[in-house]
């Protein structure tokens, strides 16, 4: 097991290094000049050049890269051009918001997807299956922003039960915090629930069609045990993959959801940073996203190994 994990970790380190080079180059390939973004259209060419020097863009690319990577390995992601403050500090302000929303959204997604996927598979072709498939199709098809707007209209404007947006941390009180986060989490969670439901249904059907399930049924093993112990556990591997990737996407930030619900999360920060060509901030955010994906992948690999010992070999 240890060798398996060490091998995976070494691969991931290589992936991170490659990603850092790619991120650095792609960000600089974006059309536009950060100095112009900072100075607006009214600046003289001399002022723009002075700004380029002030933010280090006059240095050779390799020097800029090693300065950035050298800082990144010590936790210093540089200084944001637009916000005039440290990138790490900005991310530290925003990440808890995104993490909070993502965890609640994932919990909602799993709470919906697991029973829906299992029941849909168990009663394949029946009314329950059709109902869940239709609901899942709607969940996948309906844009999150539309669902978000409808929920704001209903629960905030018409009923007045919940605030229309904004964020309150858990430290402000669990009730207040939950009231602010529930609408965006539901909007995001239901969208991902639809994907995970379909994945789980498909995996369950695959497992339920195997020989060992037929043998178990022939031996009189109760259907509940077959579904939840034999089939569900085996169907979890692809489902966990889907859930893991969903979590990764959630952590990367959902721009539209954050805009609609006025959540100061990572997605909105990334969007703003791209618009203003804030290289250090874009690099820092994308590197963090890549790192999170890599770590989630690593976690998924470890989980697979626990769930299915054959994978370790």
């Amino acid at each position: 097991m240890a060798n398996f994990l060490l091998g995976r970790a070494a691969t991931l380190a290589l992936v991170l290094f490659g990603a850092s080079v790619l991120i650095f180059l792609v960000v600089r390939a974006l059309p536009g000049d950060p100095a112009i973004a900072m100075m607006t259209s009214n600046a003289t060419p001399e002022e723009i050049q002075a700004m380029r020097e002030a933010i280090g863009l006059h240095l050779p690319l390799w020097q800029q890269y090693f300065t950035w990577v050298g800082g990144a390995v010590t936790g210093d992601l540089g200084r944001s051009f637009m916000y005039s403050t440290g990138v790490a500090g900005l991310i530290a302000e925003r990440f808890p918001v995104t993490l909070h929303v993502s965890l609640v959204a994932l919990a909602i997604a799993m709470a919906i997807a697991i029973p829906a996927g299992v029941l849909s598979a168990r009663y394949k072709g029946g009314p329950i299956d059709h109902l869940f498939r239709i609901v899942a199709m709607i969940g996948i098809s309906m844009p999150v922003f539309w669902q978000g707007l409808l929920s704001i209209l209903l629960f905030a404007v018409i009923l007045g039960w919940l605030p229309p947006g904004g964020y309150q941390p858990l430290s402000a009180g669990i009730g207040l915090s939950t009231a602010h986060i529930i609408l965006p989490a539901v909007a995001l969670g239901t969208a991902y629930a639809a994907t995970i439901t379909r994945m789980l249904r498909s995996s369950m059907l695959d497992v339920l069609g195997r020989e060992h399930i037929a043998v178990a049924r022939a031996h009189g093993v109760p259907e509940r045990t077959i579904i939840w112990t034999d089939a569900f556990r085996n169907a979890l591997i692809p489902t966990l993959t889907a859930a893991g990737f969903s979590f990764g996407y959630l952590l990367a930030g959902a721009v539209l959801t954050e805009v609609i619900f006025n959540l100061p999360g990572m997605g909105r920060l990334l969007y703003e940073s791209i618009l203003s060509r804030d290289y250090p901030l874009v690099q820092g955010l994308v590197l963090l996203n890549v790192t999170l994906f890599v770590l989630i992948n690593f976690g998924m690999d470890a989980l697979y190994a626990i769930l299915d010992p054959r994978i370790r070999r």
């Binding site: 707007l149 704001i152 209209l153 905030a156 404007v157 007045g160 605030p163 229309p164 947006g165 904004g166 805009v259 609609i260 619900f261 006025n262 909105r268």
Partner: peptide, 14 residues
């Protein structure tokens, strides 16, 4: 950051 959401916030008194 969205004009329509601003309007919703005005309506709710936020």
């Amino acid at each position: 950051p969205d004009a329509a959401t601003q309007l919703a916030n005005l309506r709710t008194g936020t």
